[in-house]
């Protein structure tokens, strides 16, 4: 079987890619894509740890399921917020809406 650290490195690479997107993108939906990549990288690490931890597979996989469920809820809300933003401001550029008020 493959060593645990390989999976962790792939997870870290995906996380860094997502981090870049969150920092560098200006379109709100593209920032959301970066957040999704980071969440997936974290889930990948969690499953890798769960698989290699002695006796920790059930707990790890169940917790991962919860992470996926919460991520789904987060995406739904984020998309509603982006649509509302576009309707009120006619833009989805995150640098334009930096006052944190309506």
């Amino acid at each position: 079987m493959l060593p645990l650290s390989w999976f962790l490195v792939v997870g870290g690479a995906l996380f860094s890619v997502g981090l870049y997107a969150v920092l560098a993108r200006a379109h709100a939906a593209l920032v959301l894509i970066g957040i999704e990549l980071m969440l997936n990288a974290v889930t990948l690490n969690l499953v890798a740890f769960a698989t290699y931890a002695p006796g920790g597979q059930f707990t790890g996989q169940v917790v991962t399921l919860f992470v996926i469920a919460v991520a789904a809820a987060e995406v739904g809300l984020a998309i509603a917020i982006i649509m509302r933003l576009f309707r009120n401001r006619a833009t989805v550029d995150v640098d334009v809406v930096d006052e944190m008020r309506w």
Binding site: S16, Y20, L23, A26, H27, I82, T91, D93, V94, D95
Partner: peptide, 25 residues
């Protein structure tokens, strides 16, 4: 949320963001 004229997809901090992500990695 399709915009009419050219929408910006990146902000001017791209290279700083790339350096930060690489450092983290």
């Amino acid at each position: 949320t399709r915009q009419e004229e050219g929408e910006r997809v990146d902000n001017p901090w791209r290279w700083g963001a790339a350096v930060a992500a690489l450092l983290f990695f």
